[in-house]
Design a protein around this nucleic acid. Structure first.
Lengths: 343, 343
DNA sequence: ATGAAAGCGCTAACAC
DNA sequence: GTGTTAGCGCTTTCAT
């Protein structure tokens, strides 16, 4: 193995100079810099990551903290984050928070601190519901490791934390407007997990759009859900059993919307003629339902890219604060919506 | 930060003893082992990976080389790998091979060597189609880093490489048998990507089952595909347009099977009464089609777990060769298959 | 069975 | 602008 000292000897300088060149530090003459670079190339020098990070406490590693749910949301953001890391010469490391760990406050804190200590990432990316967990918040503040949250939150940006998201409320508002414009009046809403702020934000957009159209929210048309297929199926079945079922259903994400469509199929209800269904996310399933799903496109890959870019540029320019970003969404009209049969 | 020396002082021993306990080395009395463990817990000790790997020349890192397709297959295996890493105290790092990189032999080699050098993983996990790429093969052999392939391959185990998979051919054989037992005679097969050995293995199982039932393969019923939804949709549409369409379709994976079901919906063909459809993988979509898909369950998470376990135990016992494994599959009967209307 | 000392490869802190 | 010294937290080696 070629060490820094070997490069130094080859170039006839001290190892500190080689270190300066490696880290692009100032105070090295250009000629010398060149000589050192040549020596590195000639010897095929590859720096030891462990030695560097042991000494400097930097790791060139971004950590993605994922919960054990393998959602399309997380996977797509992960993909964007990976692309960005690759481009910037960073490593992407994954860490898994089990449900058990999430349940105990003490356990979460220990796990979280341990993970950060042992991995020593330069920054990390958080997803709901961890992103708005107060324990996580405290640890972030104390350990001073930069954290980017993905998705909407009611947590303000901190000294070491920021958020990338779309405007969930506005998107839900516009989606609801679309249904209203088609002539729907009985529009049901299926909520997601209550520990995720997206649920609230999307519900508010829905409620406000109804209000602005002169309608009030009918509580019986607002059902709980858990963001997964089964809960959408369940809610759909319950809605369709009613004496006066809704003419449209807005599910807080695509997985649940897929469940509602399935419920309609089973009940022999035609989508979209008898029931319009819309979702949120534009995940892969949205194109594979029959009919294809009208939904809100979140730029998931771009969210991942933005999170990593924010972390890395904050690291490189110590005076700058971590930057939050709100990316544009898009309402995607497909075939799961139509005017109601009668209004 | 709590260091090993702090634990040692707390337990009233030397740091070497703590090190022995940490690494599960022999020559420590059980009582003492227990005392040290307690001290670790009390102080919330987390070993520094960089220090360990600097000294021991192990990185405690496994690298997952993923292609840019975010398939359910890769994601689920990744999840298993992550779980296993977490349990063993390893880190999981992701690396992304772009399609562009894969195309040029020279480019792939450079990228691959650079990635391995800079990440210095103790081992890595490969997916199709990289797993059977000869360039990758060469680099693995030269750099002597352990590699586990996930999925079936026609590449023999090497000095530093092995495979975890199910018996794809046998699984396809049994799936085809199921269709034959229902009374189907015109069974179509949709192939996957040709650079993935799974395509061939599954086709062979299909062909052999037909042969053993005294039927011969009708070439017109074997269609190309690319493992994705669209190609299944396309193949399904072409098959259903025929004068004498098949009574059953075996798609080489679930995504394509989902496409076939979609094609049937669009053509007004009833599944399973008019057309039986089966897939392969038992990915999440299999439960979300209507009707739910009969398929082959691959233990994807377990494949990931097995890959990591193999890598880690080979690392810990230098004399042992990397172990290959063939895990059990399961034929999952759901509602997309039935006897043909007339035979 | 346990401990003391040395040092892995690198960079922070300070000297010149 | 460049070099010297010390030491990050751990495991190796050797002693007891």
């Amino acid at each position: 193995m070629v060490r820094m000292i070997d490069v130094a000897r080859q170039a006839g300088v001290s190892s500190k100079t080689v270190s300066r060149v490696l880290n692009n530090e100032p105070h090295v003459q250009d000629a010398m810099r060149e000589r050192v670079r040549e020596a590195m190339d000639r010897l095929g020098y590859v720096p030891s990551i462990s030695a560097r990070s042991l000494r400097s406490r930097k790791s060139f590693t971004i950590m993605l903290l994922v919960h054990d749910v393998r959602s399309a949301f997380v996977n797509t953001v992960q993909f964007g984050a990976l692309r960005a890391c690759q481009e910037l010469g960073y490593h992407l490391q994954l860490a898994l928070v089990s449900s058990a760990t999430l349940e105990s406050e003490k356990g979460l804190q220990n796990w979280f601190e341990g993970t950060l200590r042992s991995g020593q990432p330069d920054g990390f990316v958080l997803f709901p519901p961890m992103a708005s967990n107060p324990v996580v918040e405290r640890v972030v503040a104390r350990m001073k490791i930069a954290a980017m949250r993905v998705g909407p939150h009611n947590v303000p940006d901190g000294e070491h934390s920021a958020t990338v998201t779309i405007d969930d409320k506005l998107a839900a508002y516009q989606m609801t407007e679309h249904l209203l414009e088609l002539g729907h009046k009985r529009i049901a809403f299926i909520r997601g997990k209550e520990d995720q702020f997206a649920t609230q934000a999307r519900y508010e957009g829905y409620a406000q759009a109804l209000g602005d159209a002169g309608l009030s929210v009918d509580k019986r048309l607002v059902l709980p859900g858990t963001f997964d297929f089964e809960s959408g199926l369940d809610a759909g079945e319950r809605l369709l059993k009613r004496k006066t079922p809704p003419t449209a259903v807005f599910a807080a994400n695509d997985d649940m919307a897929t469940g509602v469509i399935m419920a309609a199929h089973r009940a022999g209800v035609d989508v979209p003629k008898d029931l319009s269904v819309v979702g949120f996310d534009d995940s892969e399933v949205a194109l594979r339902t029959w009919p294809a799903l009208t939904t809100v496109r979140q730029p998931l890959e771009e969210l991942g890219v933005a999170a990593v870019n924010s972390l890395v540029s904050a690291k490189n320019t110590p005076e700058t604060r971590l930057a939050s970003a709100t990316l544009p969404f898009e309402i995607i009209l497909r075939n799961s919506t139509a005017a109601p049969r009668e209004s």
